[in-house]
């Protein structure tokens, strides 16, 4: 069962094609990261899913339904532009959004304090929203998003403005939700967040998908040709080995780049014969590098 699916969705603002024939399928129970540089079309895509802006072309289905109206109460959406009623009290705001999301008031009486407790906002329940700090506001915004126990969470840049402690808190809540079988879509341009959370990655640049796959298969496909080692003894011979293209000194470590078909195991054997090996690491490319690589390449292609 798919939580969300887009087929060739298009949206243009004037001459700019913000989203260009984008297709993506988000399976239920997964965490899907929408990645891309600023202005790639992440927010536009999310807004189209939420029917806040209408696609010029293409189909969007949520829980297999083309209308979002029936699905609204099953979704929690946190927009990029955060906003709550500034003059209302924290507890009231949360209860109000719960109510318009269709949560019964008896249920809200239980859930509101529960969420405030969970996000460390319990002592602020009777304060006005405008008195909250930016980080607290952000947490309250997340509580508003999740108050209706949604099956699908759509979070636009959920971690921006949070300190590391709160980021971890939010991450653990998101992971917990996935474990309960809920689906999470979130957008970010901070790669290491995506790397720790996502099952799937959609990489968008200039409104087009340039990568859409499981994170694990992306990583295994992007094979590395670099090894990082820490050695004791004379290391000058490494440059002359047949499979090595270049060696870079990185503090006490060496970065060794290998030829296209070279086997890192072969290198290890050679090293063991001649020096003491303290550390040997086959470098898996980080999402960050993949991102920079692919976005750079697609920009070059387009221009």
């Amino acid at each position: 069962m798919n939580a969300v699916s887009l087929r060739r969705a298009c949206k243009a603002f004037g001459d700019v094609r913000a989203v260009d024939a984008l297709s993506v399928t988000v399976p239920a129970g997964s965490i899907y990261g929408f990645l891309g540089p600023n202005g790639a079309g992440k927010t536009t895509t999310i807004r189209m899913i939420m029917n806040i802006i209408r696609p010029d072309d293409g189909d969007i289905e949520i829980f297999g339904d083309t209308s979002i109206e029936r699905a609204r109460t099953r979704i929690g959406y946190m927009p990029e532009e955060r906003g709550l009623y500034r003059k209302m009290k924290v507890g009231k705001v949360l209860a109000y959004f719960g109510a318009i999301k269709g949560v019964a008031s008896s249920e809200l009486a239980r859930r509101v304090p529960e969420w405030l407790e969970r996000l460390d906002l319990a002592s602020w329940a009777d304060k006005k929203v405008e008195e909250l700090s930016r980080g607290m506001h952000q947490k309250l915004q997340f509580a508003v998003t999740a108050i209706n126990a949604p099956e699908l969470l759509i979070l636009d840049e959920p971690f921006s403005g949070l300190d590391p402690l709160n980021t971890d808190l939010l991450k653990s809540i998101i992971l917990g939700m996935r474990d309960e079988g809920k689906t999470v879509i979130f957008s970010t341009h901070v790669m290491h967040e995506a790397e720790k959370l996502c099952d799937f990655i959609l990489l968008i640049n200039r409104g087009k998908a340039i990568l859409d796959d499981r994170l694990s298969s992306i990583k295994s496909r992007q094979r590395s040709h670099a090894v990082c080692v820490e050695l004791e003894g004379y290391t000058g011979f490494i440059t002359d080995l047949p499979m090595v293209t270049r060696v870079d000194q990185d503090g006490s470590r060496l970065q060794i780049s290998l030829k296209e078909n070279a086997d890192p195991q072969q290198l290890l054997r050679e090293l063991l014969d001649r020096v003491r090996v303290q550390a040997f690491e086959i470098k898996v490319p980080s999402l960050h590098e993949i991102f920079v690589d692919l976005v750079g390449a697609s920009d070059v292609q387009d221009s």
Binding site: Y77, R86, I100, V144
Partner: peptide, 17 residues
Amino acid sequence: IDEKSSRVIEVLLSAVS
């Protein structure tokens, strides 16, 4: 105007049409 400037509209529209 207050709802617009406090950017609460989008949150509202996720709950109601």
